[in-house]
Nucleic acid binder design. Structure first.
Lengths: 366, 366
DNA sequence: CTGTTAGCGCGTTCAG
DNA sequence: CTGAACGCGCTAACAG
């Protein structure tokens, strides 16, 4: 027999049960004000007896704080964001806060809707991995701040927005990795998660523009790739950059295309896990072997990368740390301990394994 | 200049601005009751002008519904739960509900705390992947129901609990996979994520007991392994079951031990991704090759599994579907459309790839 | 069709 | 040190 929705006991009922005034009960249960040990005991016993639990909603209404922070990410099923969210929620819970998570499918309008929703729920703060590429499209974040809700950005800083942000240096991490490839003697290096444009940019300038328009982290990684090329005086070849939708299938196709070029790449830089698996598929189809025929470096280390033959050289992102750091900044802001905003850059780790080797036939003609 | 926490406009202010009574404003903004088109227009304009947004907290207080469901999982950073949560939250948002996610680190006491917390927040329903192994330790879930909050279990059904649950048939999926291994001629099959006990059970009976005590899905998978052995009349060998903490390192160690046995296993069944990667490491260390020397089957397909050489045969779980199905059941219950609880079993998919082959030296002596 | 009024459950003065 | 009284912002009967 299902007990019908018995209205949860209120503080008044506890007071009645204990034979005291409401506010005496409220004070002991709320843990504020003075209450004689004797009455205190009676109230506690009464509360225990009838199974009293404070209504957090009512409490939030009076106090104005919900002890809840909102988190907005593109896709909670993506292991990267999973790690970030876990870092945030662990840090939040350590402070007695709950976490409201919204997954926006990488769509700006969903992000805007989510932000308003969370504002309506009166969250005490917001951590967001925003899909906004400039201040103009981030009005919703300003709005949150206007409502007195602190916002900190994670993973993706929005240029021109005066907000704390916790990120990694995608450009530099990529530059360094590609530089290592070049250091090994590679001259033709493919870049696998390129801009999602239909037509392949012919001029380098167009590519840079596309990268700038390419929301988020991928554009920065492409810049790093270009930086490395520049540092070493290598020519840019548009044929070596993937274009089109960012899917594993597309990556496989594009890498297959590169491999069939008269002068195929001898190394590949992959910006994401699926870019890497797509590349691996293309290599297998082409009958090529990792390291011996084509060197490989990827982003986002995973336990799989270390057990592949050969083990893959990867750039590891501190997912949990990104989350905890963002949460800490948020709480510092909530506590009013922060004056001006900052960009916090966390370190990535280059994990050298065996997928990088000198090219089979040195490009140097000298 | 940071705009100081300007108190968000209330419905009364909108009414004042529009020059109507509060409830007229409330009715148009709340979308209930009758309001003349003319006034309606005035109210809407006024709301727009001063940037009114309803306070969801206050609304929930009056109505008693929060339009929020709580989700409790062991670890949001685990891709499996990430997928499940995404399924749940997508389904929830389609119904206009938000999702409060709590990650419990696989600890029952944290789960209990999380449940009470969510009850306090007056969530309208709960989806939980519980760490409780029997009805006795699931008092918190009963409590939620006592408060009129519907609960549906996901991934893990709690025996003896009268709750809807959405699961997969771990036992049968494992039995089938192990049976295929046996069908290929394997006679000695290692089982990689065994019970987390310190001492290796000597008798089969002890192992079964341990499996029953082993919370959640792993115990069921072990049962399936045993079933397959029984079906084919194969003897059980305690040495072929991993024991100890469920970590990748431990798996590597235990598989290494099995491989060094006088009669080593010719196939391995891995219950999780990390069990698989640990096994792969052990194989490499031992200088053994997948399929040729040792066949492999794992749980939870991932894009990596398909690009390894050779590609890995895996059992795929419908993560998103588990989530959406659970959410749908929850809403049906909220809508009062369900009479009695049921166990919903979703299909897994056996993805045959190249990591399974007949044993190198047939065990058959005939 | 509109405005008045009474709660929802809790926090917080303010007398007593 | 305790209890009565009011307010948070909104919904929902209820008269008018």
């Amino acid at each position: 027999m299902t007990s019908e929705r018995a209205a949860p006991p209120t503080i008044s009922e506890v007071a009645a049960e204990a034979g005291v005034g409401r506010s005496t009960a409220a004070r002991t249960l709320g843990g504020y004000g003075y209450v004689s040990p004797e009455l205190r005991e009676r109230v506690l016993a009464a509360a225990e007896r009838i199974g009293y639990r404070a209504n957090a909603l009512a409490r939030s209404m009076s106090t104005g704080v919900s002890h809840t922070i909102g988190v907005i990410v593109a896709d909670i099923a993506n292991p990267f964001f999973g790690g970030v969210v876990r870092g945030i929620s662990d840090a939040a819970r350590a402070r007695g806060f709950d976490t409201l998570v919204v997954s926006t499918h990488e769509a700006l309008d969903e992000e805007v809707a989510a932000t308003d929703l969370l504002i309506d729920k009166r969250v005490d703060g917001l951590v967001v991995a925003s899909a906004a590429l400039d201040a103009a499209s981030a009005a919703h974040l300003e709005r949150a701040r206007g409502h007195g809700i602190p916002v900190v950005l994670v993973d993706r800083a929005v240029p021109g927005l005066d907000l704390d942000a916790v990120v990694i240096d995608n450009r530099e991490a990529t530059r360094e990795a590609v530089a290592r490839l070049i250091g090994e003697g590679h001259r033709r290096i493919g870049f696998v998660w390129g801009p999602p444009v239909d037509e392949r940019p012919r001029r380098r300038r167009d590519l840079v523009d596309a990268a700038a328009r390419d929301l988020w982290t991928d554009g920065e990684r492409l810049q790093g790739y270009l930086d490395a090329l520049d540092d070493e005086g290598l020519a840019f070849d548009a044929e070596l950059v993937m274009v089109g939708p960012k899917t594993e299938q597309r990556a496989e196709l594009e890498v297959g295309r590169m491999l069939a070029l008269p002068e195929p790449p001898t190394a590949l830089f992959c910006t994401e896990t699926d870019a890497m698996t797509g590349s691996l598929r293309a290599l297998r189809t082409a009958g090529l072997r990792v390291a011996r025929d084509v060197s490989l470096i990827g982003f986002d280390d995973s336990s799989w990368a270390a057990v592949i033959e050969p083990p893959l050289t990867m750039i590891e992102q501190p997912m949990l740390a990104l989350g905890t750091r963002a949460a800490e900044l948020l709480f510092a802001t909530i506590d009013g301990e922060r004056e001006r905003t900052e960009l916090h850059t966390l370190e990535t780790r280059y994990i050298a394994r065996a997928s990088v080797a000198p090219p089979a036939q040195p490009a140097r003609v000298e």
